[in-house]
Structure formats: structure tokens, C-alpha cells
Design a binder for these strands. Structure first.
Length: 938
RNA sequence: GCCCGGAUGGUGAAAUCGGUAGACACGAGGGACUUAAAAUCCCUUGGCCUCGCAGCUGUGCGGGUUCAAGUCCCGCUCCGGGUACCA
């Protein structure tokens, strides 16, 4: 019987669908398990062979868990909003919804072919109004809540309103944009609009003037994680800094909880580390500096409070409000010129050339510890957005301050015993403190740090500063609030309208606010976002519905927000929606959430480490604060699959000719490598006829062969169309079948490792499946022998271990060895082959299902029971002794575990290998460590 | 610069607790079957030396611990990823 994979796979896809084999219920007395893939953005290029890597891994795990008796939720959906569809729309006029729908259908077809066990009845799409209903709803909740630092939780903004009315700002400890101070009388005297302005300072979703990454080419703002080295991640366009009024999410309020939560989840250490760095907690002190001959003062943040005695200048960010206040008349012209100059330099230029630039403000600060004057400078190496936008510079102990001091010839005072600062600063936070204060100042300083370690000195200074009212201990985070507005069409519309210049959210019972139709997808002529082109985009407050723009009167009908939400909005809570995808009343019902709890296993790429995986955790914690969900972390365990890189092939054209020379001979000629489509190359051998047909220019190509073959060169590059190295999984499925593709992708190497796609080994995997198939040709009902049982249970043990540890790559050799051993034993026994079939089912579900039915089963193999291995077939009752002659390790000898010292010694001396090595010499001594080693001394 | 990974044959890799390194697969070479090819099956395949047996050597480099190190410790080199004027 031939292994006709095409027929088998087609038949089972159909059967599985007809019988809803993969449909999952929220009611079950089985324990639950939730396996999730990062849902894809459906791009026009379709899936390439790299996409399914993680999907196959999660599919294997899902099927395994189901066989183990779990009720497994394994859904799939689409992150359907995004830039490419919109840009395509601008170019062609094709509505992004149409393009997206088409791409999704293509993705589904491709996924279907690979045989995943997704419950498609739970599919979500972020662009579906029934889905973004809940994205908008969550936004409304964020608008209606603030973050209370004291209780470390989100609370209704109405609580804050009540507090203001009674106590003013006194006693409020809330995450905010700026610290406000007012009395209850002042609050009560404010107009509604004024009060709204105050509340905006506290809302978790808030509107504020923010310095944003503006990308002129894309016509939109981008989040920090969407920008890399001054260029947009999508498209690589330059990005500049601009101040704009934007929606933001107060992610920074959750910084500490996002950090603490990492200790309670099972993620890789490197991914947690990436998030820790991104959150960037730093403990330090805020210290007040008085401005000399003035009543002005300002605050700086430092992690090196111990270096107060080495401060030789202060630096302000050019954007700081203090610049205007502290610039003296004499320096005004210079400062103005400098500000102009820095404004012109883009972030990219600042990073690229990293020149030392700055200007003196004319003012001096007074060092609170020494009373000495310290000049105040302005420089763009200070970040306005971090700390207070001002700091004290200690050139001896900080390399950036050092470079600045050298450039402007400012004093450098070494503060660590024995450090040499003649060439460079000493940045390490270790050593014994000196010059703190210097001997000549010691009399007038109340604090003396000399002789302390850096750690002790930091603590001593903090204590002193606190006790004397000079400052406070402070923790700063690098994590910024997420900018949430995008000047795009193809995204979730905000459920927001504007009244007296202030935003109000649309009542949640009126959601979703549907994305309006527009005549064109570009920004308007006046530069408004694309939604400015919509004619039906106004809110009637009384009728509670979207109406025509012409009705806007600012009395009862108001304009709606023109921005849309960013890509991460829809992907931040999708895992919750899968639990209860058709619920129209709630994001997720408490019952469904109570049952599924959280994602048990999440598989996806590392590229989301500082984007989606931060936003999702934030979003989840917010919903948790509102008691809407029962887990405060969304993803219990996370595995990062590696990237599949392309393996490009080259032909070598002899320069100036149409002749191509095989890779082994190319050094004899002057050649030029040319990318060739990897799909016409097999095992690095070029299909010459296909090459001639590939492009007209190669029709008359000539070849210089080696051994009658044309061998191509190769290189590992990114998988992309332009390198002609994209491999489509459909082609692999057509040629070898889905089971081969699944097995081969796992066999390629460890899941978490990046590796090039290389079809060179795929035949071996396919051959294995054919031999495996042949095992089931005749079924023998006889009793298995001990040897056969050992082969089976050894394999079951290995495979179970591998799946639990996500080393799917090493399971496949285990199956291969098992198959080969059974073949040698000529074993076709049902008692062996049936459990083996269940064990391979997660990997190769089609072939397993087919053979399962041929074995006479009526129900799907998915509902079989995972065959646990039984140690009793494996127990060796023996111990392996390393045998050494004169201390040199020679061989391993297997002996009964029960053998005592004398028995071991006798057995070793009787062994023929021992004779080989001792060559008949009588041992002087035999040392036996029971259960460990044997050493024969001659 | 800082943080995190990694380095094993011609190739992808395995070695789960420190115990015969290179499982398994690809590729290569040889053979069987065949008019021939494909398919299938069998043998060889880290290096050196050797007719062979055997021996020596070998997991990026240099040291160390141990009866025993790919695995543990110290010091480097190179490669990959993340991040960066974060005070």
C-alpha cells in the first residue's frame, strides 16, 4: 500500500471539519489548558515557511495536552489592522477591508493545509466591529479610571472627583502628568471644562501635548518600539521629534508591577531581562539645588548621590522650562543660538555623530553640601523626558560628563581612591570614596564620606539629604507612557467626541463606534488625519448616535476624534476574547474567564518583547484592577521560536558573458554572484532547464559544469522576495505532504534557535514517514516480546520528555530509531504499533489518523489516551562502571546493580576487555567504589 | 559601551545528573537489484597513523578542579540578538 499523503491529508481535513473535531467547549470536567500563538498580521505575501514554525510547535503541544486528557483551547485569529493594507489602499483605491479579507482567506487556506487543530469557531479579527467593540470599551474604562499609587491599583475617576471636592489635591497620591496643588474651594469654583482639564492629568487614557516620534513619510506618529535608530521599523523612513496633542496610556503607572510580575511568570531569562531593561528601574535621589543670588531652585535626579562633592557643573536639557528662567541677559544670544541649533538636529543626527555641544546659561547653582558655586550649562546630552530634565555633572565618575568637561575645560575632581582620571573617567560603582569633601573644605561641611565604600556613601548621602530637607529618595523608570493616537484610517476609531475642546467618551452601551467610510484614505488637504474625509462622523449627544458632519452645532452634535488607535490596541487583550468570542454583553464572561484563567503557553517571536508583550501585560493588569479578570499576568509560560532565515542560492556569471560557472570552479574565473530562485535549486544543484525558463535573459545561458552538475553557492540572508529565497509552505506540502513539513520544521533544530530554511534534509524525513507507513501494512495480533516492549517504552519516555521540554527536534530521531528497530525486529504487532501511533499523532496528525482508522478505530485519534511509558520495561537492574587501568579511563562495563564489591571486582577481572588492556599482567590492587568506578592498578 | 545568548565533522545537529563525544538526518564514497534510470536496500564516512588489529588525537583559545570535563570554575577570542547620551 502506497503512502498517498495527498489523498490522506485531504480526506482528514474534510472529516475533521465536518465532525468539528477541534471545537472546544467552555463546559468540561476535564482540566483546562490554553495554548496560544501570536496571531499574524495577514500580509499580501501570504505565509512563508518561517511563519508556521511556532504554530507547529504549539499545535504539537496542544494535541499532546488533549491526548493527556486536557480540555485544550487552541485558537487562531488575525491582527487585521495595519499599515500595509492602508498604503496599498492609498496607491490603488482598494478598500483596506477588501485587501485584508482577501489576505485572511489566503492565510486560512495555507494554515488549513498544514493541519492545525485550531477551533476556528473562535476566530477573532481585530477589524471586526464585534471585536473592536471591546477594544473601544477598554479604552473608555481607561479614560474613566486613574492610578492610585497608594493602593497600587486603578480606581474610578469619580473617587478622585469626590476627593477633590472634599480635600482638594491634599492627600492624593496618583500617577499623573504633572503634580498639581489646589484646595477644595478652588476645585469647586472651577468650570466643568477646567475640572475636566485637571482630571485629564490623572486619567489612565489621557490627552496631552507630548513629544512624539513623527514620521513625515508615513504621516503618523509612532510609539518608541516602532522606531529603531531614528527610522520607522515599518518602511525605514526618517522619524523626527515633534510636540503634538495625542492620546496616551499611562503605562508608566504600572512600571513597578510590570517589573515585579516578571518574577512570577515562566518566561526565558533573556526575555525577562529585555523587559527589565525596557522598564529601566533606577533607584536614586532627587536633590534640590538653589540658584546663586536668587530665590529660584531646581531639582535634579542622581543615582550617584555619593558624588556630590565632585560636581563641577550642572546641565539642563535644551527643552527644559528652566532654560528660560536661568539664562542671564549676557548669555541670552548664545543660548538662543544653541537652542536653534539643537532643534535643527534630528534625533538621528544626535545619536549618529554624538558631538559634544553645549552652552553656558550664565547662572550658577549652589552645591548644598559645600556651598560652592557650580556653573549651569545647557546641553542636548540631557534628556528632557527622563528624571527632571536636569542633572549634576561629575566628570571624574561619568564618561559623558567627562567628555563635556574636557571639551569645555571644566574641573575634574576624582572621588575614588586610586582612580586615574587623566585619560578617562572611572564609571564603576565601586571603590573607596575620597575628596568628599576635600581636606580644605572639611571644616565647613557637615557630611564626610571619605573612607566609605561607594555603596555606603550613597546611603549616607541619601540619609543626610533626607534629614536636612535637601531632597528625597526617588525611583525613576525609563518606561514611558504609550502614545495611543495614529493619524491613520485603518485602525480602531476612538469612541470620543469633543465638547468645548475637551474629549468625552461615548456611552459604552452605544459601542461599537464603527469605522466610517471615507472617499480617500489619505490625510485631508488641511492636514487632518484620513477620518477628516468622512462625512458621517459626528456625535449626537441626545440621540446617542453617529450623524452627518453637517449637523455639528457644538450644542448637541459634536465632532468625533479623527485619529485611530495603534496596532497594539487590538492585540493587547485578544487572548481574553478567545475565551468567549461571541459574547455581546461583555469582553469575557466571568464564568469563561474563571474557567480558562490565563494563557498557559504562549509561543511567538522575540520581536514583540518591548511592544506587544509589555502593552498586553499592562492592559491585562488594568482589567484585573477592575475585577473583570482573575489573573494579573496574561501569559504564564512563554516560548520564543527562532526566526527562519532564508538560504539564498547563487549562480556565478563570468563577467561580461552569459556563461555561468559551477561554484567549485568559480575561483578560476572572474565572476559575479547572482541570486537565483531557490525553488529551481535542489540540494544546491541547479535545474538548468528551469533556470533558462526562469527569466528571458537566461534563455541562452551557457554553463561550465563540475561532474556534469551545476552546483550553486549559498548564503544565509533574511527571507525576502528580492533575494529569491522565499519558500512557500504550500509547495512543500504539495511535494511532500503536511506531515513531512511539520516533522521537518521541528527537525531543523531547537525551536528557540534562529536557523536558515534549508530543504537539503527534507527527503530523509519524508523517507522516514514512508517506512513508518510500511510498518502498518500487516498487523499482527501477537504478544510483544520484551525487546519490542523496550523499544516502544524507550521511545514513549523520550517523546514525553521532549514534548514537556519543547525539544521537538530530538523527538524525531527517537521516532526514526524506533521505526528502524521495529523494522529489524520485523515487529508489526498491534500492541506496539497502536501506542506508537498515538505518540506520533501530535507531530504527524494526518498519517496517524489514517492508520488509526485502518487499525479499526471509529473515533478520532485526538481523543485517544496518551500512552504513558512504563519503567518496568526499561529498568536495567544494572550499573555502568567506568573501568580504569592505572587511573586511565578505558571502557564502561555494565554489571548487575546488586553486585557487591567482591562481585564487581571478580566480574571486572573476568571481563575480556580487561584482559585486552592488562595483557595478562596481574593487578597489584583493584579499587572498587560501589556504584561508581573500578580502578585496576598494575 | 552595557545586558543576554552561542561556538561540537563537509552540513543541520545529539549527548536530559560530570561517566565510551558525534545519536539521527543530509551530503559524499562504495555495493546490491535493474537493459537503464528512478525508487528501495546494504556497507563506509571527525582527523592522524596503519594492510588490518590496535594506537594517538579531537567539542573556539589558554589555564584550573576531578579518577573522569562538550558539560563545572577562572581568563580570553570570535559570532548572533537586545539596548543605548536614562545621569
Amino acid at each position: 500500500m502506497d503512502y498517498n499523503f495527498k489523498e490522506i491529508e485531504q480526506r482528514w481535513h474534510q472529516q475533521w471539519a465536518e465532525q468539528s473535531v477541534y471545537k472546544v467547549s467552555n463546559q468540561s470536567n476535564k482540566p483546562k489548558y490554553y495554548v496560544l500563538d501570536m496571531f499574524p498580521y495577514p500580509s499580501g505575501a501570504g505565509l512563508h515557511v518561517g511563519h508556521p514554525l511556532g504554530y507547529i510547535a504549539s499545535d504539537i503541544y496542544s494535541r499532546y495536552k488533549r491526548l493527556q486528557g486536557f480540555n485544550v483551547l487552541h485558537p487562531m485569529g488575525f491582527d487585521a489592522y495595519g499599515l500595509p493594507a492602508e498604503q496599498y489602499a492609498i496607491q490603488t483605491g482598494q478598500h483596506p477591508a477588501v485587501t485584508t479579507e482577501k489576505n485572511i482567506r489566503r492565510y486560512c487556506e495555507q494554515l488549513e493545509k498544514i493541519g492545525f487543530c485550531y477551533d476556528w469557531s473562535r476566530e477573532v479579527r481585530t477589524c471586526d466591529p464585534d471585536y473592536y467593540h471591546w477594544t473601544q470599551w477598554a479604552f473608555c474604562q481607561m479614560f474613566a479610571h486613574y492610578y492610585d499609587n497608594h493602593s497600587q491599583s486603578a480606581r474610578p475617576i469619580s473617587d478622585l472627583v469626590a476627593h477633590f471636592a472634599q480635600h482638594g489635591s491634599e492627600g492624593v497620591d496618583a500617577a499623573c502628568t504633572e503634580e498639581l496643588s489646589f484646595t477644595p474651594e478652588a476645585w469647586n469654583a472651577m468650570s466643568n471644562t477646567q475640572q475636566q482639564q485637571v482630571l485629564m492629568n490623572y486619567r489612565i487614557a489621557y490627552l496631552a501635548d507630548t513629544k512624539v516620534n513623527w514620521c513625515p513619510a508615513l504621516g503618523t506618529v509612532l510609539a518608541n518600539d516602532e522606531v529603531s535608530e531614528g527610522l520607522s521599523v515599518r518602511g525605514g523612513h526618517p522619524v523626527e521629534q515633534r510636540v503634538m496633542r495625542q492620546w496616551s496610556l499611562r503605562v508608566s503607572a504600572y512600571a513597578q508591577r510590570l517589573l515585579d510580575g516578571l518574577d512570577r511568570i515562566d518566561w526565558t531569562e533573556s526575555l525577562k531581562e529585555t523587559q527589565r531593561n525596557w522598564i529601566g528601574r533606577s533607584e536614586g535621589a532627587e536633590i534640590e539645588f538653589q540658584v546663586k543670588d536668587s530665590d529660584k531652585h531646581f531639582t535634579i535626579f542622581t543615582t550617584r548621590a555619593d558624588t556630590m562633592f565632585g560636581v563641577s557643573f550642572m546641565v539642563l536639557a535644551p527643552e527644559s522650562e528652566l532654560v528660560g528662567q536661568l539664562t542671564t541677559a549676557g548669555q541670552e544670544a548664545d543660548v538662543k543660538a544653541y537652542l536653534e541649533q539643537t532643534k535643527r538636529r534630528t534625533e538621528r543626527e544626535r545619536i549618529a555623530d554624538r558631538q559634544v555641544t553645549g552652552v553656558f546659561s550664565g547662572s550658577y547653582a549652589v552645591n548644598p553640601l559645600t556651598g560652592q558655586d557650580v556653573p549651569i550649562w545647557i546641553s542636548d546630552y540631557v534628556l528632557a523626558g527622563y528624571g527632571t530634565g536636569a542633572f549634576m555633572a561629575v566628570p571624574a565618575q561619568d564618561s559623558r560628563d567627562y567628555a563635556f568637561a574636557k571639551h569645555f575645560n571644566l574641573p575634574i575632581i576624582p572621588l575614588i581612591e586610586g582612580c586615574d582620571v587623566s585619560e578617562q573617567s572611572y564609571d564603576a560603582k565601586e571603590g573607596i570614596v575620597c575628596n568628599s569633601p576635600r581636606a580644605e573644605l572639611a571644616a565647613q561641611c557637615a557630611l564626610n564620606l571619605n573612607g566609605l565604600t561607594v555603596k555606603q556613601a550613597i546611603q549616607a548621602t541619601k540619609d543626610y539629604v533626607k534629614a536636612n530637607g535637601l531632597g528625597r529618595v526617588k525611583v525613576n523608570y525609563r518606561l514611558r507612557d504609550a502614545i495611543f493616537s495614529r493619524q491613520r484610517y485603518w485602525g480602531e476609531p476612538f469612541p470620543v467626541y469633543y465638547k468645548d475642546g475637551m474629549p468625552y467618551t461615548i456611552p459604552t452601551e452605544c459601542l461599537p463606534v464603527r469605522l466610517p467610510e471615507v472617499t480617500q484614505f489619505k490625510p485631508t488637504e488641511s492636514g487632518e488625519p484620513p477620518l477628516g474625509n468622512a462625512t458621517q462622523w459626528a456625535w449626537d449627544e441626545q440621540q446617542q448616535q453617529v450623524v452627518d458632519n453637517s449637523l455639528i452645532d457644538h450644542q448637541t452634535v459634536f465632532p468625533l476624534e479623527l485619529c485611530t488607535m495603534p496596532g497594539f490596541a487590538g492585540s493587547s487583550a485578544y487572548y481574553l476574547r478567545y475565551m468567549d468570542p461571541t459574547n455581546r454583553q461583555q469582553l469575557v464572561s466571568p464564568e469563561a474567564n474563571q474557567y480558562w484563567q490565563q494563557v498557559d503557553l504562549y509561543i511567538g517571536g522575540t520581536e514583540h518583547a518591548t511592544g506587544h508583550l509589555i502593552y498586553s501585560r499592562f492592559w491585562n493588569k488594568f482589567l484585573y484592577d477592575l475585577h473583570l479578570i482573575c489573573q494579573d499576568e496574561p501569559f504564564r509560560k512563554l516560548i520564543n521560536q527562532g526566526m527562519i532565515q532564508g538560504r539564498s542560492n547563487f549562480v556565478y556569471r563570468i563577467v561580461g558573458t552569459n556563461t555561468y560557472v559551477s561554484a567549485g570552479l568559480k575561483d578560476q574565473y572572474q565572476t559575479q554572484p547572482i541570486h537565483v530562485d531557490v525553488n529551481i535549486v535542489s540540494n544546491d544543484q541547479l535545474d538548468i532547464d528551469a533556470f533558462r525558463r526562469w527569466m528571458p535573459e537566461y534563455e541562452h545561458a551557457e554553463f561550465i559544469l563540475e561532474d556534469g552538475k551545476y552546483i550553486c553557492g549559498w548564503a544565509v540572508e533574511k527571507m525576502s522576495k528580492s533575494m529569491f529565497n522565499v519558500v512557500n509552505p504550500d509547495d512543500i506540502v504539495d511535494r511532500y505532504g503536511a506531515d513531512t513539513l511539520r516533522l521537518y520544521e521541528m527537525f531543523l533544530g531547537p525551536l528557540e534557535q534562529s536557523k536558515p530554511w534549508d530543504t537539503n534534509g527534507i527527503d530523509g524525513v519524508h523517507r522516514f514517514l514512508r517506512r513508518f507507513w510500511a510498518l502498518y501494512d500487516q498487523i499482527d495480533e501477537g504478544q510483544p516480546t520484551a525487546e519490542e516492549l523496550k523499544t516502544l517504552h524507550k521511545t514513549l519516555k523520550k517523546v514525553t520528555y521532549d514534548i514537556e521540554h519543547f525539544s521537538f527536534n530530538t523527538s524525531i530521531p527517537a521516532f526514526m530509531i524506533c521505526q528502524s528497530e521495529l523494522q529489524q525486529l520485523k515487529c508489526h504487532k498491534r500492541a506496539i504499533l497502536e501506542p506508537l501511533l498515538i505518540a506520533i499523532a501530535p507531530y504527524a496528525p494526518h498519517i496517524a489518523e489514517e492508520l488509526w482508522h485502518r487499525l479499526g478505530h471509529e473515533t478520532t485519534i485526538c481523543d485517544a489516551q496518551w500512552p504513558e511509558h512504563d519503567e518496568k520495561y526499561l529498568t536495567e537492574n544494572s550499573v555502568k562502571y567506568p573501568v580504569q587501568i592505572n587511573g586511565k579511563m578505558r571502557f564502561m562495563l555494565e554489571l548487575p546493580a546488586t553486585a557487591d564489591k567482591a562481585a564487581v571486582e571478580a566480574a571486572v577481572l573476568a571481563d575480556e576487555q580487561t584482559h585486552k588492556y592488562t595483557q595478562g599482567q596481574q593487578p597489584k590492587k583493584v579499587i572498587v567504589v560501589p556504584g561508581k568506578i573500578v580502578n585496576i592498578v598494575l
